[in-house]
Design a protein around this nucleic acid. Structure first.
Length: 222
DNA sequence: AGTGGGATTCTCT
DNA sequence: GAGAATCCCACTA
């Protein structure tokens, strides 16, 4: 058992030290954890099944590469435990969990989630605004899951560590699934960083956005 | 099942 | 003014 996962207690908020990890450490450990969205209709709980690490100023795939510190990226430079939400392609929001310490821009993109219960799925379908015939249509993709959970830039910068706000993370038991890693999606411009296997997902999970047949089992898993 | 292009607006040069 | 950590529909087969 991973020594960090060992300390995690199901149902509790993710502990503060978790948010100080580097994105590359936090990304696989976020798999299986619960994302909770409080809406006027009630709480929606879902399980994170796919993540990507964007870590440090050296990562050419990151918005903060080269130390680019702008109004948009500022939140990434803060200490971990907040939400970084940005608009992509003019129409889609993407959710990141900021990790790391003050001044070190680390973030984990949440790429896919699955509803924990039929009631959670109903809530997600209400916001999703399309038929979603297959699991991947509902919340398999960073833009899709933000639609399904009504996550917009209005939530940018909010803390994720405390329950009872609009958005937070809770611990779950260690997953039984196999974690694999593969190159990240949509960053062809990132040169030598484009091929780094910094995307993590549960092998065989139907909510995963992009299946990579070359994906290798994560060495850090059991 | 797989491909190709349009949508739409914020962000930074 | 260009381009973006994407999605969806229409089209082919």
């Amino acid at each position: 058992m991973d020594p960090i996962l060992e300390q995690i207690k199901p149902g509790a908020p993710l502990p503060p030290y978790f948010y100080r990890l580097k994105a590359l450490e936090a990304a696989p450990l976020l798999l299986g954890q619960t994302l909770v969205r409080r809406t006027e209709e009630g709480d929606i709980r879902c399980r994170i099944v796919e993540t990507e690490s964007y870590g440090g100023i050296e990562d050419k795939g990151s918005h903060a590469h080269g130390g680019r510190r702008t109004a948009r990226t500022e939140i990434m430079f803060g200490s971990g435990g907040t939400a970084y939400i940005y608009l992509i392609y003019g129409m889609y929001n993407c959710l990141n969990v900021v990790t790391g310490t003050e001044g070190d821009p680390q973030a984990v993109l949440i790429r896919a989630v699955e509803p924990l219960s039929p009631a959670d799925e109903t809530g997600m379908r209400r916001y999703r605004g399309t038929a979603a015939r297959k699991p991947v249509d509902l919340s398999g993709g960073p833009g899709k899951l933000c639609r399904a959970l009504d996550i917009t830039k209005a939530l940018n910068g909010l803390p994720l560590a405390q329950p009872g706000g609009l958005l937070w993370l809770e611990d779950r038991p260690a997953p039984n699934e196999v974690i694999v890693q593969a190159p990240r999606v949509g960053i062809a411009y990132a040169e030598e960083y484009a091929a780094k296997p910094w995307r993590f997902y549960f092998r065989g999970n139907p909510y995963v956005s992009v299946i990579d047949k070359q994906a290798e089992v994560w060495a850090g898993s059991n």
